[in-house]
Nucleic acid binder design. Structure first.
Lengths: 240, 240
DNA sequence: ACCTGAACACCGTTCAAGT
DNA sequence: ACCTGAACACCGTTCAAGT
């Protein structure tokens, strides 16, 4: 039926029309690749963000991605910085300690709520704009609290390390069957510790295992803040 | 030349003699598997400890290992606990803070000196005998320092988390080319931060990036110890 | 019970060749 | 310059079949 018009307009092969009528392969760009990667990660977790899977999503071959991305690690780092853009800025008004805790908790939540992201953040040092913004925010809050600059400079690393490690720990615990077993194993081992060979551990088993994740994380932050406030850096580092 | 005696003693096929004369396949056991795994890890890093590689080493097929080991994660956890046996016990005599720092430093060194081990320790909660012994040691030292038990019980997690994360960070930085790039990237980004948009970061760039790993780790431990000493756990957790 | 061959369903990365 | 097919060198895990 449409043979006639096809012969008319589509004579020189179908290429020109399919260029306009299909949503078609958008040209590859780094931004497009990262966006597609974030999409896969949100839907299926970072573990599914592989070069091959991503290439498939973008309707190309894995080799093509290497024009825009050095390797899988760099791709994961780019995803991380992208998601770091959603960390809430410090709310005004509250006590600086509370605001600091809120920013760190928001950071932890972002890592926690994307499967696999926290584990990757432990290893991939990010250096994107969103990460720098976060560092600036933390330094500003510590400064507001009167923390000496040298201590603040070293302290932000400790705070982020604690947040990241905690998110990773709980993310695996909640979502990975094997990790749940690990934790059950530890908890059984601690409770089963003999008072003969492990007197303090046996005595403190309940306390060691107690506490909601939120309560422990919050205590961790407050503990770090107190420590940072009270622990001077070595003399030869304190230049200011 | 030996044909006659061969015909004599080896008549019913070669099997009985090869049972005695070859070092031959030692029977598979969990301990043997873990030992072979530790060997591979020491020589080539945890990344090479795969089911297939290990099976090859043990002259069998990968499927055979699943009789003794649930999966790769469990295998890695077993290796970790094995290596934890080499963490030095606290030396007597010194100040409790120094002894605590020494044990934690030794733990960090063990993780650090085995390629890939620290990263795996961040994710795999160990529960083996050597890990329990380490927990006991830490609790004993904190007790000696008069740290309230509830704070000690939560604090050991923070201390080990800090040690593990630091080891992982430096292990990747030193040995993985890509990770070195990551770090160079961060350091360039921090130094390049604009005073307009990131005033504190720009002002503290040198301090943020300063310090030998050892100095920062030591400061981290002291900061945590001070924090643990000064931060009470929430009232409903402090039961004793 | 223990062990295995073979298969299933994947990986990252490179490279010569094409446009 | 950008993109690709095809290959290389691997993975973890399962399962039916053998001993």
């Amino acid at each position: 039926m449409t043979a006639h018009s096809d012969a008319h307009s589509g004579a020189r092969s179908g290429t020109p029309r399919s260029r306009r009528e299909r949503p078609a392969k958008p040209a590859l760009t780094r931004a497009g690749i990262v966006a597609a990667a974030v999409e896969i990660m949100s839907a299926e977790g970072l573990g599914k963000v592989t070069m091959r899977r991503l290439a498939q999503q973008l309707d190309t071959g894995p080799a093509s991605l290497y024009v825009y991305v050095r390797n899988t690690a760099e791709l994961h780092a780019a995803i991380l910085d992208e998601l770091l853009g959603t960390v809430e800025a410090a709310p005004a008004g509250d006590d600086w300690r509370e605001r600091l805790e809120k920013v760190l908790t928001s950071y932890t939540d972002v890592l926690f709520s994307h499967r696999g992201l926290a584990q990757s953040a432990l290893v991939a040092r990010p250096s994107g704009p969103h990460y720098l913004r976060l560092l600036e925010t933390l330094l500003a809050l510590l400064d507001e609290g009167g923390v000496p600059p040298g201590q603040a400079a070293w302290g932000i690393d400790l705070l982020l390390q604690c947040a990241t490690a905690t998110a990773a720990e709980h993310a695996t615990r909640d979502r990975d069957a094997g990790a749940q077993d690990d934790w059950d194993g530890l908890s059984a081992a601690v409770r089963g510790a003999s008072g003969q060979t492990h007197p303090r551990l046996a005595g403190l088993a309940d306390e060691v295992l107690s506490g909601e994740p939120e309560a422990r994380l919050s205590w961790g932050f407050r503990t770090l803040i107190n420590g940072i406030l009270h622990t001077p850096v070595p003399a030869d580092e304190a230049q200011d």
